[in-house]
């Protein structure tokens, strides 16, 4: 399960086909999904990448627990056309950024420089693209950085000029690396299983049994949720309101009763 963030349709096509993704939304940005995997077409440039990612996370906040991958073509001074690279460092005016790789991967790493217009001024040992830095900066606000990566396929270099790039070639370059890209995404998905456990599914329903009966202020509701989560952690079950042994006058008393209930739970090592 991953979110692929891609600038151009020609770059996205092999992944759309391989993952059997369906186009679900046309505007403001084309969005594809098969229920598990997701693909966002951002258009070219940093502004588009940033805006599109911001829109998607607003639309589907649950994706903050999912790996996000920026996949696309990039120029490189020396590497052969068709080489798939993992971006290990991103040039940034306020200090370089370092994507955090905590899975095994044998892909070669490279420095990335994100520019605002296509360029054939190659710098030794450096990838050049037009979205990467913005993708990383924006997505790192809502996705753990360990799940945020950039994979770039070299499309041009000092020997193969940028002018030779065309749509069909771009699609072929991504297609040739599709298996590796999907393997990387799968490994990240496995890593994401180690994220802190999500809030128990029936917590909201449980909280409602209390809020329907007593008036809770915002902070009291937060305390109630914390207490119920603690109870769940210790007993693996939810504590619904009817189980309160003593009738409570108000929210404050409910919280005190719950606190006492937790205090008296038996403590044994798992």
């Amino acid at each position: 399960m991953s979110v692929f963030v891609i600038a151009l349709d020609a770059e996205a096509r092999p992944l759309i086909d391989a993952l059997k993704l369906k186009r679900l939304i046309d505007r403001p940005w084309p969005y594809y999904s098969n229920g598990d995997d997701h693909l966002l077409l951002t258009g070219i440039g940093q502004l588009n990448a940033a805006a599109a990612c911001g829109w998607l996370i607003g639309h589907s906040p649950e994706l903050a627990r999912t790996p996000w991958l920026n996949v696309g073509i990039a120029g490189h001074a020396e590497l052969a056309v068709g080489t798939l690279c993992w971006v290990e460092r991103i040039k940034y005016k306020h200090g370089d950024l370092y994507p955090a790789l905590h899975i095994r991967s044998s892909l070669p790493g490279s420095l990335l420089n994100t520019v605002d217009a296509p360029s054939n001024k190659y710098v030794d040992g450096q990838l050049t693209d037009m979205e990467g830095a913005a993708f990383y900066l924006i997505c790192s606000r809502f996705v753990p950085i360990e799940l945020l990566h950039l994979l770039k396929v070299v499309s041009d270099n000092r020997a193969d000029d940028i002018k030779n790039i065309n749509k069909a070639m771009v699609t072929e370059l991504i297609k040739d690396n599709c298996t590796e890209i999907l393997r990387f995404a799968l490994n990240l998905s496995q890593l994401s299983l180690a994220l802190p456990e999500a809030i128990p599914a029936d917590l909201d329903q449980c909280v409602e049994t209390y809020t329907q009966k007593w008036r809770f202020s915002h902070s009291q509701k937060q305390q109630l949720m914390k207490l119920l989560q603690r109870y769940h952690a210790l007993t693996h079950s939810m504590f619904f309101e009817p189980e309160l042994s003593v009738p409570a006058r108000d929210a404050k008393q409910v919280l005190a009763l719950l606190d006492k209930k937790i205090e008296h739970l038996p403590v044994t090592m798992p």
Binding site: E88, R89, G95, D96, L97, Y98, A100, L101, H102, I103, R104, G109, S140, R141, V143, P144, I145, E146, L147, L191, S192, A194, L195, P196
Partner: peptide, 27 residues
């Protein structure tokens, strides 16, 4: 994999890190 950095703080002290994810395979 060897990655050269300017100062360790750029890796160790940045925000939005997950201690729990990193613990799976620390660098």
């Amino acid at each position: 994999r060897q990655i050269i950095c300017e100062h360790y703080g750029a890796i160790f002290n940045r925000s939005q890190q997950s201690f729990r994810l990193q613990k799976q395979n620390p660098a």
